[in-house]
Design a protein around this nucleic acid. Structure first.
Length: 363
RNA sequence: CCAGGGGUGGCAGAGCGGCCAAUUGCACUAGACUGUAAAUCUAGCGCCUCACGGCUACGGGGGUUCGAAUCCCUCCCCCUGGACCA
């Protein structure tokens, strides 16, 4: 594969790439490249973390990049996820991994690493503290939105200040020259670029290239706001706190149907339309051609061979919201079927799901 | 540790001895309206009951009172300031 082809794949993943020139140099250098992404194992896993992440990771690995998936269990403790219970967080992480196994993720080139293992290494703490000494407290607080705590900066606990220090240390501990996270993680990644050069090799001495993927919208109506784009992206992203705002990887057919039917979807509107987003970022990635079935009185079936195709017709109001909703239900259901099957057949997976569900009930 | 201010339903936030199951806003649910959703309007929104009614509730515990979310005592927790700082 040529460098151009590899770059092209990475550009498909990145809604924004900071340091594209550096990325090209990295690709040209021929050195083995590591990209990193991390996650807090909390609650359920939705399609943005499941399906979309699999699509993105597969593109990155296809571009010849080795992926390190960082299980930020200790980070989640500082962020008080799952009641700050490390054991629960570990179980949820295992559950997420089971989901990915069944989601078509190319696991051959993905290595899972646990923060709870790394934490045993004094070198790690040395780096975390070093990162912390590079800037004033307020500089770290500014990145707080990445923890999903954007609205309540005054409400941060002291433990949460450690989170960005740890996340930045992770990048350099793992030797990641590329960070491939969501747009919501932009601010920490920028801080990592600033700090990187102040750290000495081997854990440091470079600026990571930041490949940020698109944040999939939640299903509800986006809030009215004139905030800047980054803040808005976070405000409208798919969240787990409202279960009907997100489609989860283990949702039933009925769940999918209910949620999609309830989704915000103004006719003719192609901006900030969650249903269209799912077509663009997931469905057309998985199905090269999509047939929208509809009653003959509304024009009969339409065959679409690209997202642009759909967007154009939708904009012209030649396709009705309900029609794309109904088709989306069927296709999403197909994509989630293997996951459901995995969780019904595989005993380990089944047990994990049961445990995770019990956490949700106890909360 | 001291002083002051707080802890009320999913959240925000009123109430400050009976008219409080608890104003109001948001969220949520249902119906009306649209070939979807949104917006708008109407209703519901602690639990049991068709209903009458009953039960459990205002941080925990105890008390005063015919009667307490509302007063007193005590404990826990949070916030603001102060004190301490070899």
């Amino acid at each position: 594969m040529t460098i151009e082809e590899r770059l092209n794949l990475i550009k498909q993943v990145g809604e924004e790439i900071v340091g594209e020139d550096e990325l090209i140099k990295l690709l040209e250098s021929g050195e083995p490249l590591i990209a990193y992404d991390g996650f807090e194992p909390s609650g359920q896993i939705h399609i943005a973390q499941g399906l979309l992440r699999a699509i993105n990771i597969n593109k990155m690995t296809k571009a010849g990049i080795k992926f390190k998936m960082w299980i930020a269990d200790w980070h989640a403790v500082t962020n008080n996820k799952m009641g700050g219970d490390l054991e629960k967080l570990k179980i949820v992480a295992k559950y997420f991994i089971e989901v990915w196994k069944a989601s078509g993720m190319d696991l051959n080139n993905v290595e899972f690493l646990w923060a709870s293992d790394m934490v045993k290494n004094p070198k790690y703490w040395e780096l975390v503290i070093k990162v912390g000494t590079t800037n004033k407290l307020s500089r770290f607080i500014r990145t707080a939105e990445f923890m999903g705590r954007e609205e309540s900066i005054e409400k941060l606990t002291a433990a949460q200040i450690m989170y960005p220090c740890m996340q930045i240390a992770d990048i350099f501990m793992l030797g990641a020259k590329i960070t491939q996270l969501g747009m919501d993680q932009r601010k920490v990644n920028m801080l990592a670029r600033e700090i990187g050069m102040q750290l000495s090799p081997p854990a440091g001495g470079w600026k990571p290239v930041v490949v940020s993927h698109h944040m999939l919208m939640g299903l509800g109506k986006p809030p009215l706001s004139d905030a800047d784009k980054a803040t808005r992206t976070i405000a409208i992203k798919m969240s787990k706190s409202n279960p009907d705002n997100a489609i989860f990887m283990t949702d039933t057919t009925e769940d999918i149907k209910r949620k999609i039917t309830k989704a915000y979807c103004p006719e003719g509107e192609v901006k900030e339309n969650p249903v269209l987003e799912y077509y663009r970022y997931i469905l057309f990635e998985k199905f090269p051609q999509i047939t929208i079935e509809r009653p003959s009185k509304y024009g009969g079936a339409v065959i679409l061979d690209s997202y642009q195709n759909l967007e154009q017709l939708y904009k012209e109001r030649k396709i009705h919201p309900l029609d794309i909703k109904q088709t989306a239900v069927i296709l999403l259901d197909q994509l989630l079927e293997p996951v459901r099957e995995h969780f019904s057949r595989n005993e380990t997976a089944k047990a994990l799901l049961a445990q995770v569900k019990s956490f949700a009930v106890t909360r």
